[in-house]
Each structure stands twice: as structure tokens, then as C-alpha cells.
């Protein structure tokens, strides 16, 4: 299945949760399976990786799975790059002291790979 950039952008931009087109019953089943795997499968693949059954192509190069029972530690990886700014690595987001998400600081901290 190939998605044109424009088509994909439109699908995502105007329907945030729109699903990929299903071309035929057999293809639909395959696509639905892949979507289901994408929704819960990320968890399956991540879990598999933690048990060293790698499906590496689904991961970015520097990805390091957190260890079993290590999610809280992973989640609590928080830092402050400047006064009044709090960045959450797991969420990949920064918030300002006024309590709101900062697109500016999130971009500065994470958009270029941190």
C-alpha cells in the first residue's frame, strides 16, 4: 500500500482518526489486522523487543526499550532545560510554569532529535 504525501496529509489533517483506504475484502482483512496490530501491536512489538525478539525495522535507530517493570522510571524521566520549563521525555513534551503545553519548547527540545 502506498500513500501519497498529499493524500496522507489530507487524511490526517482533516480527519485525524481516518483509517487507511481498504481496497478489497482480502486486502481489507490484511489492513485491518495491521491496524489492530498497530493499535495494540506497538505494545506487542515493544514487549517482544524487551524479550530480545527484535523486529528492528519498526524502531528508530537509537530506540532503547525500558526494562520489564521499568515503565514508572521511564515515565518519570523529567528535566528542566530552563527556569519555568518542565520537559517530559516519555511524553515528548514540554510545559511552562503557567501549566500549559509549550509548542515552542517542545520543538526546541525534541524536534531535532534532542
Amino acid at each position: 500500500m502506498k500513500f501519497s504525501r498529499t493524500g496522507l496529509a489530507c487524511m490526517l489533517s482533516f480527519g485525524l482518526l481516518a483509517l487507511p483506504p481498504l481496497h478489497s475484502p482480502s486486502h481489507a482483512g490484511k489492513t485491518a489486522d495491521a491496524i489492530a496490530a498497530g493499535l495494540v501491536g506497538a505494545a506487542i512489538v515493544a514487549a517482544a523487543s524487551r524479550h530480545h525478539k527484535h523486529h528492528k525495522r519498526m524502531y528508530y535507530d537509537s530506540y532503547e526499550p525500558y526494562p520489564d517493570n521499568g515503565y514508572d522510571t521511564y515515565w518519570n524521566n523529567v528535566y528542566s532545560p530552563a527556569a519555568g520549563i518542565t520537559c517530559y521525555r516519555a511524553q515528548v513534551a514540554c510545559y511552562k510554569a503557567n501549566g500549559h503545553f509549550s509548542a515552542k519548547w517542545t520543538r526546541m527540545q525534541f524536534a531535532d532529535g534532542e
Binding site: 498497530g38 506497538a42 505494545a43 512489538v45 515493544a46 523487543s49 519498526m58 524502531y59 528508530y60 537509537s62 530506540y63 526499550p65 521525555r89 516519555a90 515528548v92 525534541f110 524536534a111 531535532d112 532529535g113 534532542e114
Partner: peptide, 8 residues
């Protein structure tokens, strides 16, 4: 849900 997409 981490790992499929990069932090960037």
C-alpha cells in the same frame, strides 16, 4: 506505544 515513532 513508544519505539515505532522517533521522539522527533
Amino acid at each position: 506505544n513508544e519505539g515505532v515513532l522517533s521522539p522527533a
